[in-house]
Design a protein around this nucleic acid. Structure first.
Length: 303
DNA sequence: GATTGTGTTGAC
DNA sequence: TCAACACAATCG
């Protein structure tokens, strides 16, 4: 059980928004303490959960190591669900017009998803950067703006229950240099990296080096990506880097390509659908998959 | 084994 | 609507 993960820091960490791994002091019964924030509930392990109620139903917004971060997550959801005048934990911090537009451009479930994945801040920043005028809706960075770093045909274990993708050593050391961390500065295991996918969504994975197996891996967050993209052994994932600002923010992209399969081997959806799903023009999906017209009625912020 | 987040209940 | 509490489902 030598899970000895060598903790290291990424040379130019492309973003490490908010709370790192939990760094609790006394995990035990310290959790009973109720939160001083609205929409925040203590978790048995000392962390904090955020939730909001929508029409009698609880909407879980995720768990956070920091109580205040959880409170901010609630605030974001409150504004998205109840509008600009919603009661929030930090009334003093006005919501910018840009953020309001960003919120309006995404469905409630999308915002909740970002909060749960802890990528809201990153997506907002990205959304504000492009979306300039009013396009509002997060547009994917065009494919020509990316430089391919490397690809990997995923193995069964990469898409299995292990929640980890082994990054081929040669590529890892060349493109994702893991520099020794300033000792204790690395509170958690490894480093958190954000990747934009072909649809403009942001994914966050933990990247670290497993000493026991002497391999570089993407762990936390990986299985969620596998699940949502329906990745299967044999499919290909590609990692690219923005051709812009090398030092700026080191934007990273993760894409995937499904390998055609016999219908009998296909899971829930067939190969036709899988292929149609990947037809894109300059990074923009022209197949019409589009947004899920979920959500109830009477939404605020909906234009 | 640890953590998440759902089930459920009872106040406000 | 909202959170306290218990604990099953899910995760790492």
């Amino acid at each position: 059980m030598d899970s000895s993960t060598e903790l290291v820091a990424f040379a130019a960490s492309n973003s490490s928004l908010e709370s790192g791994p939990n760094e609790l002091a006394a995990p035990h019964l310290l959790s009973r303490q109720p939160s001083r924030f609205k929409g925040v509930v203590p978790q048995p392990n000392g962390r904090w959960g955020a939730q909001i109620y929508d029409r009698h139903a609880r909407v879980w917004l995720g768990t956070f190591a920091d109580e205040e971060i959880a409170a901010r997550a609630y605030d974001v959801a409150a504004v998205r669900y109840r509008g600009r005048e919603a009661i929030t934990n930090f009334p003093g911090e006005r919501v910018s017009a840009g953020e309001l537009a960003f919120l309006a451009a995404h469905s409630r479930s999308e915002i909740v998803d970002m909060l749960r994945k802890h990528t809201y801040a990153a997506e907002l920043r990205q959304g504000l950067r492009r979306g300039r005028g009013m396009g509002a809706r997060a547009q994917p960075t065009p494919l020509w703006a990316w430089k391919l770093l490397f690809e990997k045909v995923v193995t069964p274990s990469d898409v299995g229950k292990l929640n980890r993708l082994v990054v081929p050593k040669q590529h890892a050391e060349k493109h994702f240099p893991l520099k020794r961390a300033p000792e204790e500065k690395t509170t958690g295991k490894g480093v958190l990296l954000n990747f934009e996918d072909g649809e403009g969504k942001v994914w966050r994975f933990r990247y670290s080096y497993w000493k026991s197996s002497q391999s570089y891996v993407l762990t936390k967050g990986w299985s969620r990506f596998v699940r949502e993209k329906g990745l299967r052994a044999g499919d290909t994932v590609a990692f690219s880097q923005s051709v812009y600002g090398q030092q700026d923010n080191n934007q990273l992209l993760i894409n995937y390509r499904k390998t055609p399969r016999k219908q009998q081997d296909e899971g829930p959806d067939d190969a036709i659908a899988a292929e149609a799903r990947s037809i894109k023009l300059f990074g923009v999906d022209i197949t019409g998959g589009g947004r899920k017209a979920s959500e109830g009625h009477g939404e605020f912020l909906e234009t």
